[in-house]
């Protein structure tokens, strides 16, 4: 099978995030970056699919020089090849990114494409679905179980308080989330091998964004509340406060 996995390098979830001096960007200088945690499930599922059906896993990432790190991690886990769609544009608009990815993936004879369900950072969770829609192939988001066979796939996607079962022909796009699989750690051997695998760099120019960042600010700080008391003795007063002061019970 011809398998693509789209990955993104994102700020570490533990990183302190500082608003840039212009008030509409993030100061990225001090931020450690990692492979998007949801993309780990996508890479793992791509590798499992290859192990079952044979073929090749291509890791694709769009972004500046830093994007190559996401491809290297995917390769260290086991992806065969990498494609780096290189641009220094800010790429904050999911439609702008989706159009470029669809243009690059379309016509490649792909059978399945995996994405993480969203990238921590921007948190839009749109690009995988946009790519599928533009390629006119089915997309299933937030997949929690998946069975791929020749020409078709079935599985489940999560909804509030349960799941939906689906069936789809291939080619198709899947966005992955926690619970789908247990992503493997890149082995030392995998990391060494990744250095020798090819990354094809394609310079790209994105369409003008339709979604524009006007301002980035910090959320209002929650002020520290009160300690009602210690142990079980505090319970009657807690309940009274929730009823009479906060009025939430």
């Amino acid at each position: 099978m011809n398998i693509y996995v789209c990955v993104k390098q994102v700020p570490d979830t533990e990183a302190r995030v500082q608003v840039g001096g212009d008030g509409k960007s993030i100061d990225s200088a001090q931020i450690n970056t990692i492979l998007n945690p949801f993309d780990e499930f996508a890479v793992e599922q791509a590798l499992l699919t290859r192990e079952q059906h044979g073929g090749e896993v291509v890791a694709l990432s769009l972004g500046d020089d830093g994007a190559a790190a996401a491809i290297r991690t995917a390769m260290a886990m086991g992806a065969d090849k990498g494609i780096h769609l290189k641009t220094d544009q800010s790429a904050d608009d999911p439609l702008q990114v989706g159009k470029e990815l669809a243009g690059q993936i379309g016509g490649s004879g792909v059978d399945v494409v995996f994405f993480g369900k969203q990238a921590v950072g921007n948190e839009h969770g749109q690009v995988g679905l946009i790519v599928a829609e533009l390629l006119a192939v089915p997309a299933i988001s937030e997949v929690s179980s998946l069975e791929v066979s020749a020409g078709s796939a079935s599985g489940k996607r999560e909804i509030e308080g349960g799941s939906e079962s689906f069936e789809t022909p291939l080619p198709a796009v899947f966005t992955t989330q926690k619970g789908l699989n247990e992503p493997r750690y890149p082995s030392l051997k995998g990391r060494m091998a990744a250095k020798k695998k090819p990354i094809e760099v394609r310079e790209v120019t994105l369409d003008e964004p339709l979604l524009t960042v006007e301002k980035i600010s910090y959320p209002p700080e929650r002020s520290r509340g009160m300690i009602v008391g210690e142990g079980a003795a505090a319970v009657p007063e807690l309940v009274r406060l929730l009823k009479e002061e906060a009025k939430v019970l």
């Binding site: 993030i26 948190e123 339709l210 979604l211 524009t212 006007e214 980035i216 600010s217 910090y218």
Partner: peptide, 17 residues
């Protein structure tokens, strides 16, 4: 306005078209 970076910031966006 939407939270981003895990709620550490809020991003205000405008729309063209």
């Amino acid at each position: 306005t939407r939270p981003a970076y895990g709620g550490k910031v809020r991003v205000t966006v405008s729309f063209a078209g």
